[in-house]
Structure formats: C-alpha cells, structure tokens
Computed example of a mutant assay.
Amino acid sequence: MSKRFEGKSIIVTGGGSGIGAASCRLFAEAGGKVLVCDRTEAAHDTAATIREAGGIAAARVMDAGVEADVQAMVAAAVDLHGGLDVLFANAGISGGRESILEADEALWAETLRVNLIGPALAIKYAAPVMVEAGGGAIICTASVAGINSGAGSSHYSASKAGVMSLVKTAAQQLTGSGVRVNAICPGVIETGMTKPVFDYAREAGKLAKIGRINPLQRAAQPEEIGTVALFLASDDASYLNGQSIAVDGGLSSSHPVTRQLFGQVAV
C-alpha cells in the first residue's frame, strides 16, 4: 500500500471493532500514526495488532459523547504524534429497534449524545488544531439510514441525518481554514453494532440473504468502508468538502420499504 499518510497524525473513534478497527489498520499500513479510541478495552487490541505488523499506534479508552474525553483525546494525539492531520469520528450506537411510539426520552438522548453530539465535539476540538497547522481532514460516520427511512429506527435515523447536516454546516463555518469535513454513509455491513443480526442469520442459515435488497446483493466488509475513509482523508479528495458519500451497494438509489405501524396501503 502507498505510504500516503506517512508521518500523519490520525485519530479514529470507535476503533475497537468493525469499520473503526479496519480503518485504523489501513491508516497505519499507509504510514499514519494512529490513536485508536474506543469506549472499551478493544482499543488496545487494535493498537497492538497494528504495532505487531510494524505500524505506529497508541490506544485510548474514552467516550466519544463526553466533552472532556474528546478534548483530552485530541490533546493526547498532539502530545503523542506532534499534531493532528486526520480525525475519523466513527463511534456510534444502534440505539435498538424500538419504533417511534416505543422509544423513550432516555433512548433518544443517548442515541443523539453518541451519534450526533460525539461528531460535533470531535469537530469542535480537532478543527482548531488543524487550522493552526494549515489544514486537515475530518470524516464522520453517518448512515444510509440518514438518507431514507427503512434502514434504521427513528432515533438512529434522525441521529445520522443530523451528522449529514453537521458536515455541511461545519464545512461552511470552517471556510478558508483548509479543513475539510465530510461524511460516509455505510449500508449493510457487519460490525460490532450489527453483530446480533448477522449471528442470527448465520444460525438460521440465512446469511446469504443479508444485503440482498441492494443492487450488489451482498453486505459490505469493514475494509470497504475504511478505504473510503482513507480516500476522503487524502489529498486525492482535496476538492471534496461538506459531502455525505453513500457506500451502500446502491441501496439508497431507490426507495426502501419502511416500517409501517398501522398497516399497508394497497397500490
């Protein structure tokens, strides 16, 4: 792999598993100095794997939705790796599958705290460091659930639609700074968050059916999202800003079936 991130300081949240862990490994293989952040000790496992492969990585256990943790995370990257060039605000939670009539205030608040306030805090503390250095790249994980209904619960979908709006407003407010802000909208992919669904499908002998409604008729692998994160962080994407890129096998190119609580209308 090309060493296009040689010497660059990179933070990835949610780096303990799934998209985050895959992205950490890819950034390190491309020469980056990675700070792996996660709310679990799995951050240390990802960092250890990178170091065993000859890469540079440190780990930090933190909560991406807690302001003090995010501020300390950015400071740690600066101290450890001499600055901050790339931040991938990837941490997120599913929040469960409760309908809009079932989800309570606490569930809404927690989902928004992690999925939307988390990326906002990441931008708040990462951007000034990047501005001072002359520029940088911030990538946030949104979702196809933020594009159309039918891909997630109401609270999860709203949080991810918020991320898509956030990158637009952040890109505009950082005009002239040299800092680019974009989002990735993954489709069906096996991660720690979706593991129960995939495990159930395996047990039921229906794994091949997952992802069949998109034109590629399959689920994605975490690395397929990670490579897009690397592209958005690289100079190859130097004119991409304020955008949300769907990486979903074509799922969002049509109108998916949504959850209907009170019956369906015949057409």
Rank of each mutant, 00 (worst) to 15 (best):
A145K: 04
G178K: 00
G263F: 01
S94Y: 12
V74E: 03
A109H: 06
S153L: 05
G82E: 13
V257F: 13
K3C: 09
K3A: 12
S157M: 14
E6Q: 13
V129H: 10
M62C: 00
G83H: 10
S94W: 15
C140G: 03
G92H: 14
S149Y: 09
G146E: 13
K209Y: 09
P196Q: 08
A120N: 03
S159L: 09
F27D: 07
G20I: 13
P128K: 07
V12L: 12
A77Y: 13
T141E: 14
D199Y: 11
I138T: 02
S234K: 00
A28M: 10
I184M: 10
S99K: 02
A237K: 02
L232Y: 08
K209N: 12
H44R: 07
S165Q: 07
S154T: 13
F5T: 06
A204V: 14
L174N: 01
D199I: 14
A22T: 10
S157D: 10
T258E: 13
Q260Y: 07
A48E: 15
T141D: 11
A170F: 06
G31F: 12
S9V: 06
G14V: 06
L87E: 02
G150M: 00
G31E: 08
S17C: 10
V228L: 13
L26P: 04
L121F: 04
A59F: 11
A42Q: 14
A151M: 09
E223Q: 14
P196M: 09
V66H: 07
S254V: 15
I10T: 08
L261G: 01
A58T: 05
S238V: 01
S238G: 01
A183K: 11
A145P: 07
T191V: 09
A122Q: 15
L35E: 03
I100V: 11
Q243C: 12
V267Q: 04
G83C: 12
N214P: 04
Q71R: 14
A161K: 07
V228R: 03
I117C: 08
P128V: 11
D235K: 01
R202P: 08
K209I: 08
R39A: 09
M130W: 05
A21G: 09
I213V: 13
A171C: 02
A68L: 10
A43M: 03
T258A: 15
R218C: 00
V188M: 03
S234R: 02
E224A: 05
G134Y: 13
R218E: 04
D235I: 01
T175F: 09
E203H: 14
A57W: 04
T227F: 11
V74T: 00
A68N: 10
I19W: 05
R202Y: 13
A170W: 03
Y239E: 00
K168Q: 10
A76G: 05
S99E: 00
A161I: 09
G92V: 15
G250H: 02
A72S: 07
A151Q: 08
A237T: 04
